[in-house]
């Protein structure tokens, strides 16, 4: 497939937004359980949530560049019964709304406990909204990934690994940002978020590697013979029927050399997994506030390469109809 920049930005940016929100909420739950020192709500949760919103809005904005008629985008909520794209279009604003509420609650400090569960767990508004938003974040991971994983003949995507990868890569980059953010703010949660960022990065390294291996061993069951329904071993296309370009020759192929595609894979393996983990570990020993930020930046660049490769790797069966010009 042809990797479109709008979709690369959309999927990576909202992944960070989701991951970052989940990181913040995890932090809140941990401090509730007194595993972490409580944070001043206004600065940390409100500001962090706001940054998550900025990422989500950036993704949303990028997605509009993918549409021919963004002014009609509201129509895309109608087919949620059948279309994962429609489901994503519904869940993204819902999630953004919940995060916005979460930010408001923390900003105005409406965090007095509403009630207490079994005399130990004080439940406030932010906890309830945060919990709902966390569910929305996971549903959003699912919907985004299922847009690709539900296309049966794009075999490279047609696997649960697609969902797993989108989720863990989003979590990794979100927690990585949370680490960078706390380093920047001088809050001593760097080690907590950094550790989780490394854990999620390592898990996603395993699952992404698994999908790379799976796709390397894929056998495609289509060829020219099945394409035109002529049973013969030797079929050659003489002409695709036109000498210029068409949507079909542009949309479904990356038009890059195999060398370029393979380089992208190597680049993303290094930038998404190797370098950030090394940087976080180094920052742990050096007590550096700067390294987590670099780790996040490097991982994000790597994620763009990863998404590029994700699209480029998928071989659409329609391409066999467009192989020769004469």
């Amino acid at each position: 497939m042809h990797p479109a920049f709008s979709v690369i930005f959309l999927t990576t940016l909202i992944g960070i937004g989701q991951g970052l929100f989940l990181a913040l909420f995890t932090g809140q739950v941990y401090s509730l359980a007194q595993l972490l020192p409580a944070q001043e709500s206004q600065n940390f949760y409100a500001l962090g949530g706001f940054v998550a919103l900025v990422f989500l809005a950036g993704g949303l904005l990028a997605s509009f560049f993918h549409l021919g008629h963004p002014e009609r985008a509201w129509r895309a909520v109608t087919q949620w019964r059948t279309s994962w794209l429609s489901r994503e279009v519904i869940v993204l604003p819902v999630f953004m709304g919940l995060v916005f509420l979460y930010v408001l609650i923390h900003f105005f400090g409406w965090t007095q406990p509403l009630f207490t569960v079994s005399d130990a767990l004080p439940v406030d508004l932010s906890l309830i909204v945060g919990f709902l938003a966390s569910i929305a974040a996971f549903v959003l991971f699912l919907s985004t990934a299922m847009i690709y994983a539900s296309l049966k003949f794009l075999k490279e995507w047609y696997t649960p690994l697609t969902v797993v990868n989108f989720t863990f890569l989003g979590l990794a980059s979100g927690f990585m940002f949370a680490a960078a953010f706390s380093a920047y703010e001088g809050i001593d949660l760097v080690a907590f978020f950094g550790t989780w960022a490394v854990i999620f990065t390592l898990i996603s390294a395993i699952t992404r590697f698994a999908s790379l291996i799976r796709n390397r061993n894929l056998r495609h069951n289509f060829n020219l013979s099945s394409a035109i329904g002529v049973r013969h071993q030797t079929i050659r296309q003489q002409t695709q029927g036109f000498m210029g370009g068409s949507f079909n020759t542009r949309e479904f192929f990356h038009h890059k050399s195999p060398f370029f595609v393979n380089s992208m894979r190597r680049i993303f393996l290094v930038l998404v997994f190797l370098v950030p983990v090394a940087l976080i570990v180094a920052s742990y020993f050096m007590q550096s506030a700067f390294l987590p930020m670099v780790a996040f930046a490097v991982q994000y660049i790597g994620l763009m390469a990863e998404r590029w490769y994700f699209f480029a790797e998928a071989k659409h069966p329609q391409n066999q109809y467009y192989q020769a010009i004469s």
Partner: peptide, 10 residues
Amino acid sequence: KCIGCKYCSW
């Protein structure tokens, strides 16, 4: 109604 998302062509 079409918003030009191209998903159908995929």
